[in-house]
Structures are given as C-alpha cells and as structure tokens.
Computed example of a mutant assay.
Amino acid sequence: MTKIRWHHAGTVALLCASSVAHAGTPSVGSREYKVLLNPASFASQPADAANRFLTDLQASLAANGFDRTVTGSFAADNDRTVLYYDSPGTCAVKQAGYSMRERDDSSGRNIELKFGSPNQTTSANTDVSGSSSKAKSKLEDDITPPSNQTYSHSTNEPLSDSKNINHLSDIKDLFPTTHVFDSVSTQTLVPVSGLSIHEVTYDGAVSDLGQENADFTMTVWYANGSTTPALAEISFEVDVNSDGIFTDKVTSRSQLMFSVIQGMTNWVQSPSSTKTAWVYKYLPTFCGQ
C-alpha cells in the first residue's frame, strides 16, 4: 500500500483549462492516463497479476483519501498483432509528429494514423481524415508520467487484407489529406525496430469519478514471438460529460488516481515512457544516427 502526498493543484488547473474547446476546431472527447509497469510482474498468469495490481491500487487509493471506489476485475479482452510503421534511417513519420499503427485480430486489420502535439489547437487542426466510410476520428488528451500532456488527433479505419504497406505514399493512399510526406513519398515503410508485437489487453475494472467513469485497461506486450512479457501498461480513460467538459471533481479524482499509480513503486517501471517510445527504442539504430 502506497501513501503519497497530493501536490498537483497546478496540474489540475492546467487540465481544467485544457478541456475548453477552441472555436472552429474539434474538441477533446476524452483523457487517457497511462503508466508503464514492470513487465516481469506479468510473466506468470498475467490476468491474476493484473487483479493483484487492482487490489493494491484499491488499498493505495483508500490510504490517500480517494472518496470513490474501483469496482470490477480484469479479464482478457483483445488478443492481436500490432505493428508500427516508419522509414528506416530517417523515421520520417516520427519526425513529423505522427505515428502509424496496424492492429490485426480475428475481426481483421485496422490502421491508425495519429498526430500528437502538446498544443491542443495544433493537434485539432491537423487533418488526419481517412479514406474509408468506416473511418473514425478522435481528439484525445494523453497524459503520461509525471504529468505530460499530448493532444492526439487520430483516425482508425479498416485495412484490407490485400493492402501492402511499403512506402510513405501508402499513408497518402489511406489518409488522403495528409500531405506532409509528399516530398519523401518513395521512402520505404517497414515495421519500426523490426517488431511484431503480440498484444493482450485486459479490461473490466472501473471507477465512478462522479459524472463520468474511469475505464481501466491493462495491456501486455510480447515481442517477436517471445512468451516473456516485454512491456506492460496500466491506463484509464475518462470521457467528457454531456456538456463536453471535465468537471473539477472528475479532474481532481483522475489526477489523484494517476498520482497514486505512479507512487506504486513495486509495480511501476522507472523511468516511465510510452508504448510508442518503447517501440522506437527497442532497436536504437532504426532511426539512424
């Protein structure tokens, strides 16, 4: 059980202010708080380990005066293959502030293009429209330790089984309004760091924060066919309310929960980063010198 002190009033104020939409741009629809955990903790019976984490979290939240509860338990949800794409030697996708991720599961392939910026307006105004009638876009506030904010504007759409991803021009084919790669369209696109990731996610845990819930996901990654976990992440997502805002109470409870998780040093990976950053660091030479 971890006892922490609450010193994030300034961060809460910042998050409250950031929920206000700028006129003429898409508004933030959700916040997702993400913390990397020690993957060794999930080497045996990862679902059981996820629920042990949940028990420790409940105790730590109670010790820190959390005035709500966390209910439910983790059970396996998604089981899929994940690839990130970029150009070897130059990492043109990353350098432009984007990431490109493919997920493949029993329902088929899906491709996502995401642009991220610490500036909400910049991200909202970056067009990532897809080419499919089934494309879905969102603007999300991603928050990572200690309190870093990235506004992520992304579009997901189905990817046909016959579509090969070989060059940067394929991004334009799939997301026609994206012109940033036009001058380097012939550069090769390959899986970043040569990684094929087996991703298993667990969900079912939830916390009532007031007007909105925090929905938890535990993600475990296995790299290139290994049965030993290479990465683990706990995240929780909070949607805006019916008025399109995050109330002060929802924000403060979210931030308290995020801080409590970071204080669970027997679980947390230190230093923490993001899943995407981990992919690029897996083979440090992938982007060249």
Rank of each mutant, 00 (worst) to 15 (best):
L168E: 05
F42C: 01
F53G: 06
T219F: 09
Q262H: 03
A230N: 14
P26R: 00
H167P: 01
I197K: 09
V12T: 11
T90K: 13
T150V: 11
V238T: 10
G210W: 11
W6D: 13
S226P: 10
T178N: 03
F74P: 10
L209D: 02
W267F: 08
N164Y: 07
V220Y: 06
G288V: 00
N148G: 07
F258C: 05
S207D: 06
L174W: 04
I197F: 03
Y33N: 09
D248A: 15
P176L: 03
S193C: 08
D105T: 07
K249P: 11
L195I: 09
D239V: 05
T227D: 15
Y33S: 07
F216H: 10
S235F: 10
F74G: 11
G89Q: 07
A277E: 14
T144D: 03
E237H: 03
V70C: 10
P26M: 02
A43W: 02
A92L: 04
S131W: 08
L195T: 00
A277G: 11
S129Y: 00
K275I: 01
A135V: 04
M264A: 02
V12F: 01
K34A: 08
S99A: 13
A9C: 00
D248F: 09
G97E: 04
S235T: 00
T177S: 14
D173R: 14
T178L: 03
S87M: 00
N64C: 12
A214R: 08
I245M: 07
V12E: 12
L159P: 06
K249A: 14
T201F: 00
D215R: 15
